[in-house]
Design a protein around this nucleic acid. Sequence first.
DNA 1: GAGTCCGCTCGG
DNA 2: TATACCGAGCGGACTC
Length: 572
Amino acid sequence: MHLLASRTGNGEILVLSLDAEGNVAGPALRLPSHELPGYVLGQERDRPRWVWEDTARIYPLLLAAGIRVQRAHDLRLCHAILRQSSLTQASALARAEPSRWDRAVAFEPAASASGVTLFDLFDSDGDSAAGSAAAGFGTQAEYRRQLDAVRASAEPGRLRLLLAAESAGALIAAEMQFAGLPWRTDVHDALLTRELGPRVAPGIRPERLENLARRIRDAVGEPGLNPDSQPDLMRALQKVGLKVTSTRAWELKELTHPVIDPLLEYKKLARLLSANGWYWMDTWIVDGRFHPEYIPGGVVTGRWATRGGGALQLPKQVRGAVVADAGWKLVVADAAQLEPRILAALSADTAMAQAGRGTDLYAGIVAGGVVETRDHAKVAMLGAMYGATRGESGRLLPRLAKAFPRALALTETAARAGERGESVTTRLGRSSPRPGERWLATQAKAYDPGATDADERRARSQARDWGRFTRNFIVQGSAAEWALCWMAEVRRELRMLPQGAQGASGSEFDRAPHLVFFLHDEVMVHTPAALADTVEEIIRRAADNAGRHLFGDFPVDFLLTVATVDSYAQAK
DNA sequence: GAGTCCGCTCGG
DNA sequence: TATACCGAGCGGACTC
């Protein structure tokens, strides 16, 4: 059963019951918006799939009302996929003129804080006036277009899985933001004080940072130097005879001079203060939880982006502040060498899959005699997936290509397609964007009779850049699909635990295991300690299932590193 | 003063 | 012992 919820012209929510083709299969229901949460809760027993315009706008208000839904279809996210996918290019959806479904939606964060009601967040579209979906841009019309596009595609099964996973991701994103990552400000504050010195007002250097700044100024003989000014620092270093081309830490590390040690230490601590210092803590930690905004589909490849608090870059330095509640545990799992395994499966390279069977894939490559050290195996693999040509990685590539011809052929083919300006497509059907007008113009110019050498060089270099992008796109994008399927399975199974059932007292997030963090190939579940073992099993089973969903019987392992810990710092 | 770009460092 | 892919976000410098 599919229930499509949209806004009517007269202040109500319209709920349509639809069949698998998107046709109306029951009487329409009109509800005042304040009655929607109760209605949704009542319907959840039948596990409907809610069809709505934008999970990120709607779901937070249901969550705030204590309601979780099991399944959804996010029309905005799914439209973006189908619009672009090479598998649906013949569909009416892909051929239509741009409409409101193609607009990037700038949704309001913290809607609940400003008295926004559910009604405001649903789309108003003409579906209510019978037949005036004639405009064709209503939610039901859009849903039917999406179903049609999938049904007529070459790979309906894969696309259905992708759309379901993307939509489940949107639910998870909203739930994780709502629940938050457990964060101990007292631990964080102690850590900052130990590293930087006692807390000071914003704009003032903490004691240890100020001491280091003084040592830097002394060492270069410039009492007024501001070590935060890159140009000034650069000049000062050159004045004392250091031939640097930048002030990056790795370049400074190579040098010997009294200024280097304090400068490297200064950079490390200045970064800690500016990125995750007290100001960050005050801004982002609310009632012991970090609530970053996750943005599913926010990266072209299908990875998630985030906004606020830098959730994609939580430094290892501060992970000690992520601590489970008393009586609870954190189960942290990451997929080991995910992208090479994805590449092996995508290309059906059985030799490469074999190298990772039951073991660290890089170690397996060494064991197979392809290269001498794990580091070499890793550098060579990354080079194959990212398109390295020079250096160590470039030198090792031929050996990799000899051992794993199918895998390397796949990345090469993807790169060549990109160089020609073509798009490439992931396992489940997400396609890369086409290069823009300027790219095409630059290529065209190189073929012009009057083209100069510089024109040709520019065109070649730009083509290779785009080739590296498409080369990486299919691997990174397919890995993102695997991770979405993995996480969706984890969520589904967690909710089937008795403690996950709705209706008991208190918020589900206060009594049952739930996802609290996700980062490309890593998930974290906050769970009552007694259930930690069960959660681990669920996470492992979900990884196996995700592999089967994407790659069927192809014999590739998706190995996990799983740790049940009190603090994130103890994982890995 | 607001907006934008650069350089840098963090994450995968 | 950098290089190649995808990001977020900061402080400073620069532009209008």
